[in-house]
Design a binder for these strands. Structure first.
Length: 675
RNA sequence: GCGGGUGUAGCUCAAUGGUAGAGCGCUAGUCUUCCAAACUAGUUACGAGGGUUCGAUUCCCUUCACCCGCUCCA
């Protein structure tokens, strides 16, 4: 997918990030470590800005969201309840022929005949061996083994489908029955062949042999030659240059998942892939001490839901936001920092009433009127509107930090792609140079998470809603029944999917439905979950631009400008004396810098020509440069501000435009643009 | 993890079985009245480990990282 041109762009970005101190490889002096990255001085500022903007947008500026900062290591039961221990340890297997990797649980079941092979040796060595078999120089032990061997199996002659034993060729019908027989006696037979092949290996003069088992599954109607061809290829890849393949027999198989559906080749046994980082809590490192570094920040919010709800004086609908490190053993960390093993998330869990409760209180659940932002939250919103609301809120956030809508894509997951508990999920994608990839996912997760923790911890995760209780009591009986029934069905579906026996689940669901009528329910949740590091990478990619300029001497030079939004730019303003060797300019610049740095990340630089210093600031994305020159002291020479003293030039990064501002207006002018 | 490619100053590139150069950058200084000016001085590298060799950056092996595919997701 990635065009060469786009790779070049990524290389330029990574190179700039290293050169200017945005991002370094972790542990670089020891050769680096895959999937881990450090943020340098400018990267740290950039990241801090992004996180602070998210935090203030999501919590401080809202009445209905509060924050949480939980530990990275939590009780391991949390990860069993959330499903991460299971879903994050997918068994994987590889095709023995093409090395292609499969998720063992996603291999399509197939039927057909499995051709089993137990090894191969060099054709020359076998010929030689057969000649010797007739008598003379062969060691007695070896000879005996071969006699046993040929009683028990046939080998498939290389390149043909002829079946040979030491004394005669088999007819097709004999072949079939023979194969059946050997298969019935497979273990003893395999052992025999292995022993002889091992001895072939030991007899250097007789060349190499390979003792690896192999098999090919052929669908009905496919010629048997193709199984042999696959087997030959397999043993070729194991270093036998001209293999004679030892065939064990045919086995009919139904709905097997042990073979590659694309070529019929045997797969390796499933190997569990644990994507969770395991560690041990306490001084002993036994199985009982196992804990995990969190693979997401969300679960802590669910686990602490009751505490937060009880102490924050919030009522549903409300949200809990958290940002912090998370850890996943990615199969392949790739694309710079995009898929890191240690990364940072910004997650909000926004708790809402189940639609049945909304309907009971407001009479009807409002339905989305169309695309776009649905406006200020209303009490009659169900999950659909809340979900749409958060999708739009998040896109607004991205626009506010300089990622225009045109660089983003909304992807509504198809029903079949959704996790079983999710009702909808929208990915906000960014058009990275290496492809359009996910920045944030906004999932409507029903009441799955809190229900899981209620079930697994035995602690109630439900809340009591006085307004609901009152409203429910006033409903006509048939409406009550209808709502209770719908709630019952939803709860029943969850409970049975969790593996609870039907009778038990039915009773529990009925209890939940009765609870709803009394004002009790488990909140549903909308989860906007974003990756900080991905966002940083998106901001870098979006800001990166090159300007080629030809100077007076005709020398053309390409320089980089990072066009960060002032709100995220690591350095907001650089204060520069026009000349270094004029003490009054230098002192004034220093004083302005000191007055600005209290309020924002400012930078002071007096080395090199003014043009060079501007270029340096462009390259790290500083949106504004302030220059102290002679007119600062002598007054503006001409124009509408002529004669005015104590002014500076203010240069804009993106177009080089300059304007003159009184020093006294500098701070409010800048604050208005960087906050 | 598998297959293919890459690995020499901060960056972009050279050269070589006899321990490495350039340009740009960076630091300091001189000079300089607005977009990488000039001059002077300084700065820094053969990814790591092992082997072959009198001697390895160069040849061989191993390993690590990065890039491209398979796979995965915030």
């Amino acid at each position: 997918m990635a065009e060469p041109k786009e790779n070049v762009l990524m290389e330029k970005i990574t190179s700039l990030c290293k050169r200017r101190g945005f991002i370094f490889q972790s542990s670089e002096i020891y050769g680096g470590i895959q999937g881990f990255w450090d943020y340098g001085p400018l990267g740290a500022e950039l990241k801090r800005n992004v996180k602070e903007l998210w935090w203030s947008t999501m919590t401080r500026m809202r009445d209905d969201v509060v924050g949480l900062e939980a530990t990275i290591i939590m009780h391991p039961a949390i990860w069993r309840a959330s499903g991460h221990v299971d879903t994050f340890s997918d068994p994987m297997c590889d095709c023995l022929l093409t090395k292609k990797r499969f998720r063992a649980d996603q291999v399509e079941p197939q039927s057909g005949r499995a051709f089993h092979y137990v090894g191969a040796c060099e054709a020359t060595s076998l010929t030689e061996f057969l000649a010797k078999l007739d008598g003379e120089n062969l060691p007695a032990e070896l000879k005996l083994n071969f006699a046993e061997l040929f009683q028990a199996f046939s080998y498939q002659e290389r390149g043909t489908s002829r079946w040979i034993s030491h004394d005669r060729q088999f007819s097709p019908s004999e072949r079939a029955s023979f194969a059946f027989e050997t298969l019935a006696n497979r273990e003893a037979c395999t052992e025999n062949i292995k022993r002889v092949l091992a001895q072939l290996n030991a007899q250097k003069a007789l060349g190499k042999a390979c003792l690896d088992n192999y098999a090919v599954l052929l669908p009905k109607g496919k010629p048997t030659e193709s199984a042999l061809a696959s087997a030959r290829q397999f043993y070729l890849s194991r270093g036998i240059t001209d293999p004679v393949v030892f065939f064990l027999g045919v086995e009919p198989l139904e709905s097997t998942t042990r073979f590659n559906p694309e070529n019929g080749s045997l797969l390796t046994p499933p190997v569990p892939f644990n994507l969770m980082f395991k560690t041990y809590v306490g001084p002993t490192a036994t199985e009982a001490d196992v804990a995990y570094l969190r693979p997401e920040t969300a679960q802590a919010i669910f686990a602490q839901f009751k505490n937060v709800h009880e102490t924050s004086r919030q009522k549903v609908p409300f949200g809990v936001a958290q940002m912090g490190k998370a850890f996943r053993n990615e199969v392949t960390p790739r694309n710079y920092t995009f898929r890191s093993r240690e990364f940072e998330q910004m997650e909000l869990e926004f708790f809402i009433k189940p639609d049945e409760a909304v309907e009971a209180v407001t009479g009807a659940v409002a339905t989305p009127a169309g695309k776009g932002h649905p406006g200020e939250p209303q009490s009659n919103w169900g999950w659909q509107l809340w979900h749409q609301y958060w999708v739009e809120e998040r896109i607004r956030f991205y626009e506010g930090i300089g990622l225009p809508r045109t660089t983003l894509e909304e992807y509504w997951q198809k029903p079949e792609e959704l996790a079983h508990y999710a009702r909808a999920c929208v990915d906000i994608l960014f058009k990275f140079p290496f492809g359009t990839q996910e920045l944030e996912g906004i999932a409507a997760r029903s009441d799955f998470d809190l229900s899981q923790h209620e079930r697994c911890s035995g602690k109630s995760m439900g809340i009591f809603d006085e307004e609901l209780r009152t409203a429910f009591g006033k409903l006509p009986p048939e409406k009550q029944t209808e709502l209770k029934d719908r709630y019952y069905q939803a709860r029943l579906k969850y409970l049975t999917k969790s593996g609870i026996p039907v009778a038990e689940a039915g009773a529990a669901a009925q209890e939940d439905a009765d609870g709803l009528a009394k004002g009790q329910y488990i909140p549903h949740v909308i989860e906007p979950s974003a990756g900080v590091d991905r966002l940083i990478l998106a901001l870098l990619a979006n800001a990166f631009s090159e300007v080629t300029e030809t100077d007076a001497k005709g020398k053309s030079e390409t320089r980089v400008v990072l066009k960060f939004h002032p709100r995220v730019a690591p350095i907001k303003v650089a204060v520069l004396p026009l000349l270094k060797n004029k003490p009054e300019l230098a002192a004034k610049a220093r004083a302005i810098f000191e007055s600005l740095r209290v309020h924002m990340m400012a930078f002071h630089d007096e080395s090199g020509s003014i043009g060079r210093r501007y270029a340096r600031q462009d390259e790290v994305g500083t949106p504004f440069c302030v220059t102290v020159d002679f007119e600062t002291f002598e007054g503006v020479k001409d124009g509408p501000q002529a004669g005015q003293k104590d002014t500076v030039t203010l240069r804009h990064r993106d177009d080089g435009r300059q304007e003159r501002l009184p020093i006294s207006e500098l701070l409010p002018w800048l604050m208005a643009r960087v906050k």
